[in-house]
Amino acid sequence: MSASAAPAGWPAGVGRAILDEAPSTMAEAAARAGDAPGPLWIMARRQTAGRGRRGRAWADPPGNLAATLLMPAPEPERAALMSFVAALALFDACADVTGRPEAFALKWPNDVLLHGRKLAGILLETVAPAHLAIGIGVNLRHAPEPATLEPGAVAPVSLAEGLGAEMPPDAFLTPLARAFDARSRSFATYGFAPIRTAWLDRAARLGETVTARMGTHEVTGRFETLDDHGRLILATPAGRQAIAAAEIFLAGGEAHAARG
């Protein structure tokens, strides 16, 4: 683990652990949960067994960001909403390091897109005794091969490929931690409403047709909004439907932000 002091701009009261290698930062967070009194960012320069949502493997070649924030778990109804806080912080960090906020968009529930292609993903898990682990993977230098993705998945991209931006993961972690600290303080003070508004302002395909896949069941409809619980609201021929958890597939073409 790196023993260097936190860099300039690192948020006060937040721990930082940089590992040369780990099976996964999520596993490392679970192992440290009993000894972490406050928030702690864990980053690995190399993961040997990274994973994404639904237990899928997460490709993580050197040069990409693999990090997990371990934090005391909020009450359950707020814990699920932390994915929107994390997504906004990740958007903020990407905009900060590139100066190109118009290039990025947020895909429900927890992906960041660059020019309509998947740049980053977020994974939330509760860990004992009373912690929340927020795993973040960002394709800074490399993107997965399209052949490794499931049919219909959004094509991947790296920051280097999409914008020509070279950003070491250690350097990216600081603006990410700073942005998360700011967004989480806003959430704690003002609740979900401003987070919801900001997320929708950056949403991919708002007002357009998307398909929500829940196992073998699919719902297709127009993406209207998010409700106060973070559920996706689709307008369908059968009426408005609230989707709490699903894989979202975007109909043809790239997914752009709702704003211009």
Rank of each mutant, 00 (worst) to 15 (best):
A6P: 03
A8T: 10
A12D: 12
G15F: 06
E21H: 12
E21L: 15
A22Q: 03
S24L: 04
A27S: 14
E28I: 07
A29Y: 03
A30H: 04
G34S: 12
G34N: 11
P39N: 11
P39C: 12
P39I: 05
W41H: 04
R45S: 09
R45G: 10
Q47I: 04
A49D: 07
R56M: 05
R56V: 03
A57L: 08
D60M: 14
P61I: 01
P62Q: 09
P62G: 06
L65Y: 02
P72E: 12
P72W: 07
P72A: 09
M82L: 13
F84C: 01
A89Q: 02
L90Y: 03
D92W: 05
D96M: 10
T98D: 06
A103G: 02
K107P: 08
W108D: 00
D111F: 10
H115F: 09
H115P: 00
G116E: 05
G121Q: 02
I122Y: 07
T126R: 15
T126H: 15
H131M: 14
A133G: 12
G137W: 00
V138C: 06
L140I: 04
E145V: 07
P146K: 05
T148R: 13
T148V: 14
G152A: 15
V154K: 09
V154E: 03
D170K: 05
F172M: 02
F172S: 00
L176M: 07
A179Y: 03
A179P: 10
F180N: 05
F180W: 14
R185W: 10
T189G: 09
V210S: 03
G215N: 12
G215E: 07
V219K: 00
D228H: 10
R231S: 13
L232V: 05
A235F: 06
P237Y: 10
P237I: 13
P237Q: 14
A245S: 15
E247M: 11
F249G: 12
L250N: 08
A251N: 13
R259T: 14
